[in-house]
Structures are given as C-alpha cells and as structure tokens.
Lab assay of single mutants.
Amino acid sequence: MLEGKVKWSNSEKGFGFIEVEGQDDVFVHFSAIQGEGFKTLEEGQAVSFEIVEGNRGPQAANVTKEA
C-alpha cells in the first residue's frame, strides 16, 4: 500500500488526484474509495491505496482514508 494526500477532488464529477511524494500524481475515481455511504475525499486528506493500470494509465484502487 502507498500513502499520499488528496491533491484535489471533485465530488460532482466523481474523481480527483492523490499526491505521492517523489512520484507523479495518481488519478482516483470515487468507485475506488472503500467504505459505506457517500464516498468523498477532502483536499489534503491522508489516504492509503494501491496502484492499478486503468484505461488511461495508472490509477488508485482500494483507497482508504487515514484517521
């Protein structure tokens, strides 16, 4: 699992980007967020995730919010 911080997200469009130190930003779709209820990410929020190869390149999977 990698750790990063949410660079920005748009809940209306359903995606955002995660900033990882020393690496390119990672695309995240809201379907990759683990948990119940409305899935949102806040700018600056710490997250853990895996990287998978998506249709348009690397993207985050199994995203969990850190406490």
Rank of each mutant, 00 (worst) to 15 (best):
M1I: 14
M1T: 12
L2D: 02
L2R: 11
E3S: 14
G4E: 00
G4V: 03
K5P: 00
K5F: 10
K5T: 11
V6A: 00
V6Q: 00
K7E: 02
K7A: 03
W8L: 05
W8I: 04
S9I: 15
S9M: 15
N10Y: 05
N10A: 05
N10V: 05
S11K: 15
E12G: 09
E12H: 10
E12L: 12
K13A: 09
G14K: 12
G14M: 12
G14P: 03
F15P: 00
G16P: 02
G16F: 14
G16E: 00
F17A: 02
F17R: 00
I18M: 02
I18Y: 01
V20N: 01
V20D: 00
V20I: 11
V20Q: 03
E21H: 12
E21V: 12
E21Q: 11
E21W: 12
E21K: 13
E21A: 13
G22V: 01
G22S: 05
Q23P: 03
Q23D: 06
D24S: 12
D24K: 14
D25C: 08
D25P: 07
V26E: 00
V26W: 04
V26S: 00
V26F: 03
F27I: 01
F27R: 01
V28Q: 01
H29N: 05
H29K: 04
H29S: 07
H29E: 06
F30T: 06
F30S: 07
F30Q: 06
S31H: 07
S31K: 03
A32R: 02
A32G: 06
A32M: 06
I33R: 00
I33W: 04
I33C: 06
Q34R: 09
G35A: 07
G35K: 04
G35R: 00
E36A: 11
E36M: 10
E36C: 13
E36L: 10
E36H: 11
G37L: 09
G37R: 05
F38E: 14
F38D: 13
F38Y: 13
K39Y: 08
K39D: 10
K39H: 11
K39G: 10
K39L: 11
T40R: 08
T40W: 14
T40I: 10
T40D: 09
T40L: 09
L41A: 01
L41M: 07
L41Y: 03
L41Q: 01
E42G: 07
E42W: 12
E42S: 11
E42F: 12
E42N: 10
E42I: 13
E42H: 13
G44P: 00
G44M: 03
G44T: 03
G44F: 04
G44C: 08
Q45Y: 06
Q45A: 09
A46Y: 15
A46R: 15
A46K: 15
V47E: 01
V47C: 04
S48D: 03
S48I: 14
F49P: 02
F49C: 03
E50V: 13
E50T: 11
I51P: 03
I51Y: 04
V52Y: 08
V52S: 05
V52L: 07
V52E: 07
E53T: 12
E53S: 10
E53F: 14
G54H: 06
G54K: 05
G54Q: 04
N55C: 15
N55K: 14
N55W: 14
R56Q: 09
R56T: 07
R56K: 11
G57W: 04
G57F: 03
P58V: 08
P58Q: 07
Q59V: 10
Q59C: 07
Q59P: 04
Q59H: 08
Q59K: 08
A60Y: 02
A60N: 01
A60D: 01
A61N: 07
N62Q: 06
N62I: 05
N62R: 10
N62T: 06
N62C: 10
N62A: 05
V63H: 01
V63P: 01
V63N: 02
V63G: 01
T64I: 14
K65G: 07
K65S: 09
E66C: 15
E66F: 14
E66M: 15
E66S: 15
A67W: 10
A67T: 13
A67K: 13
